[in-house]
């Protein structure tokens, strides 16, 4: 299982990857990797802080916001995760995010991961 940092590096690499095979699939792929990174980073943080074992993502993020020393970052992370999640589902009329959005979201995740 790759670490959150590895996943974020992979996500950024996908965005920068010029392979034609990724054309049109790049953003969903990067979004999936970044979301995966956030999920495992949050799980790790909660477990390390004695609050692990959540089955509901929303509850896990509420818990994170309550416990984390930087609640603003925790809330931002929750929002970023929701956006990445939406990009990974075919649940709305929204089109996949554009590169600059993803770069911003990956940066938010980086801040959280690096703070651990």
């Amino acid at each position: 299982m790759p670490t959150p940092t590895q996943l974020l590096i992979a996500a950024a690499a996908v965005l920068a990857n010029d392979e034609a095979v990724l054309d049109g699939r790049r953003s969903v792929t990067a979004a999936a990797l970044a979301r995966q990174a956030i999920e495992s980073a949050v799980d790790q943080w909660l477990a390390a802080n004695g609050a692990g074992g959540w089955s509901n993502r929303r509850e896990a993020f509420l818990c994170l916001a309550a416990l984390h020393p930087d609640p603003a970052l925790a809330r931002q992370l929750h929002d970023t995760w929701a956006r990445l999640s939406s990009a990974c589902h075919a649940t709305s009329y929204e089109l996949p995010p554009i590169t600059s959005e993803l770069e911003r979201w990956i940066a938010v995740a980086r801040r959280f991961v690096d703070a651990q």
């Binding site: 790759p2 996908v14 095979v21 699939r25 969903v28 792929t29 990797l33 589902h89 075919a90 649940t91």
Partner: peptide, 22 residues
């Protein structure tokens, strides 16, 4: 594709599969 590492494929292909079903 042969151009991506297997571990990366394992991360991303399920996402696309789920999107397809949805």
């Amino acid at each position: 594709t042969q151009r991506l590492p297997e571990s990366l494929k394992q991360q991303i292909v399920p996402i696309h599969c789920r999107r397809a079903l949805e």
